[in-house]
Amino acid sequence: MKQQQLLVAALENGTVIDHIPCDKVFQVVSLLHLDQNDRDAITIGLNLKSERIGLKGIVKVANKFFTDEELNQLSVITPNVTLITIRDFEVVEKKEVQMPDTLTGIVHCPNPKCICNNEPMRTVFHLERPSGRLRCHYCNTEIATAEAVIEH
């Protein structure tokens, strides 16, 4: 526990993504292109004890503050992770990442006959309530969030 606290506390400025399910950690790393970041200090923790989800992963990135678009992408891969923003060693914000009502350019449409797979354009998906499914703005195909594939 102490070590984990240290991990977070050691950050002067940056972001901590906490409560990531372990099997999603590397997806998060690649989604945020952290594997291509050769500038900022990045700490990746795996199989850490969590009261909330058993074992968890954590990703800590110095000097990085994520854009809304990046957070929206994150929300599709791993809903309910905790995002902690740190400035001058202080936690200035701590929130759960939630999926927005509309996802633009994030989720791939599985319908090969959808216009969005045949034109140079961004996909648009709407979060349907109360089902929690994602519906393609163009072809109306619905998918479960867990099946969502991220656009590249």
Partner: peptide, 10 residues
């Protein structure tokens, strides 16, 4: 008229 779904929306 288009053979792709969502073409008119786009």
């Amino acid at each position: 008229r288009h053979y792709l779904e969502g073409a008119a929306r786009y």
